Simulated assay, not measured.
Amino acid sequence: MSLQQPRKPNLLESMACGGLAAAFAVNFTHPIELVKTRMQASGGTIGGTISGVMKNEGVLSFWKGLPFAYGRELSYTSVKLGAYAPVRNLLGAGEDSPDAPFYLKFLAGALTGGVGSVIGNPFDVCKTLAQTNTDKGTSLIGLVSNMMRDQGIAGFYRGVEVNIIRACILNATKMGVYDVTKGYVTETTGWSRKDIKTSFASAFVAGFFMTVTVAPSDMIRTKLMNQPTDAKLYNGFVDCAQKTVAEGGVLSLWRGFIPIWARFAPQATLQLLTIEVIYNNMGFSGI
């Protein structure tokens, strides 16, 4: 009797798996992102930022904005991570098309990342404001209320242009490199694509390249989203980039590289390993 072959999940099934995997992973990576966001907003060092948070706000403050992070992962990441495989397959670059050009994998990542970023932008804005909020008297509800009062619904879409750019670059790199690396690892080691070792090695490589390509847009996104609710410091993506370079030089666009990598590497690994495990348990074929 032959074993039942794994089937490809449909779009909704894959998105649900992606959202659950991302929500699980963010519990562990959120403190790293808070440090990264604080560094980008203030220009401080890793050590100074961590010690400042510990001294002035306490250990639990490293998880500031976690409810918004859940909302972001269940919206944005469910699309960028979960929808990747169905979109890739639709473009003709799935596992059953080994000769498909690699750029189709990057295109699938860019498409799902861009769409997901628009859906998740309000959660991104709220999460950034919560992570940079040092006022113990301002609650999460207060941050949302202040934004609605000062800027209305449009305020929750501040920085959406750079967020789309960032998401396209990030997800194209993350999913494209992960997918291509999985093929390379299976060819050189003999491990199967569903082997946990294959997923781990591929996810770690993807995390590094994500950091290199995404750091500049991540910096600009943080600055745009972290503007006070009652003030506008930058007139969009280009103005923010010009002012950032004028103040700190071109390399300042990569400020926070280490904490960004420290977040991206484990986050990509946790997300991708978790979704692969969920796929296996559900009887689905992997990415």
Rank of each mutant, 00 (worst) to 15 (best):
V144K: 01
N226V: 08
F264N: 14
A100R: 01
D179S: 14
V160A: 03
G71R: 09
M1K: 07
L129K: 13
P228V: 09
A83S: 07
T134Q: 11
V185A: 08
P266I: 02
Y103C: 01
P216E: 07
A215L: 00
A85S: 10
M148R: 14
K55G: 10
A172E: 06
L34H: 04
D179K: 10
V125P: 12
Y234G: 07
A154V: 12
G207V: 01
G249W: 04
F264M: 14
L74R: 12
G155T: 07
L20A: 13
I196C: 13
D218Y: 08
S61E: 15
Q4P: 09
A110F: 08
E247D: 05
T229M: 05
Q131G: 04
S51V: 02
A85M: 15
P9A: 15
G236V: 05
Q5P: 14
A41H: 15
K223A: 01
Q242E: 07
E73S: 01
A265R: 00
G152C: 13
S192H: 14
N89H: 04
P98D: 02
N171E: 06
F264L: 06
A203W: 00
K8N: 09
P216T: 08
M210T: 07
N89R: 13
V205S: 04
R72K: 02
G18K: 02
I141D: 11
V214S: 14
N10G: 10
V115Q: 00
T213Y: 10
K182H: 13
I165V: 12
Y178V: 13
G47Y: 13
N163Q: 06
L60A: 15
D124Y: 03
A85T: 12
A268F: 00
G283N: 04
E187I: 01
